[in-house]
Amino acid sequence: MATSEEEVTLLGVVGSPFLCRVQIALKLKGVEYKYVEDNLNNKSDLLLKYNPVYKKVPVLVHNEKPISESLVILEYIDDTWKHNPILPAQPYQRALARFWSNFIDDKCVAPAWKSVFLVDEKEKEKAGEELFEALKFLENELKDKYFGGEEIGFVDIAAVFIPIVQEVAGLQLFTSEKFPKLFKWSQDFHNHPIVEENLPPKDQLFAYFQARAQSLATPK
């Protein structure tokens, strides 16, 4: 648990899957924190101060020390608050967890964004095919109830993005016929009390994706 001497602040935008990752990890650890809402189209001075390089949320600020990028934040949380670990103890298994989490960001997140935002139907179809191929790898990797075994772990938290995109875009990414293990995982994962508690309503998710699309389309 975070002690009274510790100051933990989380900068984010409601509806962000990347914010959800951090919130789930903090909740699993029982870490109390102050949440500060930011704006994708009008970034606060606080965000620019704590993340001047990427100017993105989420940012975790622990005793005035900022950490950015959601997967980096997850590792920091696990290293700082040792109870209820989300990364495996064994080095090889830890390396695999990092590998598959990076795979999700590299091979699933990008085509998922395109599947939501692209207007060109051919490009949208291509992105959908890329995502389908990536999901086949994840289907084969899933051996237990969760990627982390019988309890939620690092890869599960990283993968929160995928079913959220399905929810917002109405994409049938997970079907019991095409991906039976991932379909069951998505049901179990989203019905977990901590995950369910930290997933924003669909209207907030949709608002985030719309704002994100506008932000990406606006020349910097």
Rank of each mutant, 00 (worst) to 15 (best):
Y92V: 13
N191C: 10
I164T: 01
V59L: 06
V22N: 05
T175N: 08
Q210R: 14
A95H: 06
N39Q: 10
G148V: 01
V165N: 09
L96D: 06
P193V: 04
P111E: 05
F206T: 15
G15E: 10
Q166F: 03
C20H: 05
L71R: 02
P200S: 10
K124T: 05
E32L: 13
S44V: 03
S4F: 10
E69T: 01
F209V: 11
V53L: 11
K43T: 03
V8T: 09
V119G: 00
D106V: 01
A127K: 02
E151L: 11
E123Y: 02
V36N: 09
V195S: 03
A211R: 12
N41Y: 00
I73K: 02
H83C: 11
K220R: 14
R98S: 08
F132C: 10
Y208P: 08
Y92H: 14
V160M: 00
T218P: 04
V59S: 06
L87W: 00
I86M: 13
T80C: 07
S215Q: 15
F147T: 05
G12A: 05
F154D: 05
V72Q: 08
D120G: 03
V13P: 10
K181W: 01
N39C: 10
P58R: 08
Q210D: 13
Q90I: 13
V13Q: 09
Q23G: 02
L216A: 13
A97Y: 01
P66K: 05
V72F: 06
L205T: 03
V61K: 04
E75D: 11
I77Q: 01
W100N: 09
N42K: 14
F174C: 06
L131W: 01
L40T: 03
G12V: 02
P91K: 08
S4W: 04
I162Y: 00
A89N: 14
L131M: 10
A169D: 11
L138P: 09
P91Q: 10
I77M: 01
P85V: 00
L11H: 06
V8F: 07
V57A: 04
E197N: 09
W113C: 12
G153I: 02
L205E: 08
N140S: 14
V109D: 00
K27D: 15
N84M: 11
V155T: 02
K178R: 15
N198C: 13
E177K: 15
K55R: 13
K145H: 08
N84E: 13
K143W: 05
L173Y: 03
A207D: 15
K126Q: 10
V57S: 04
A211I: 00
E141S: 09
I162D: 02
L131P: 01
C20E: 13
I67W: 00
L205C: 08
A211G: 14
S176M: 12
L216R: 14
L26Q: 00
D120V: 03
P200T: 04
S115G: 15
T218S: 11
V165Q: 08
E6N: 11
E37C: 07
S215T: 12
P193Y: 01
F137D: 06
V165H: 03
G148Q: 05
V72S: 11
M1S: 14
N63T: 06
V22F: 00
A127N: 04
S68A: 15
N63R: 09
Q210K: 15
K82E: 13
L26R: 00
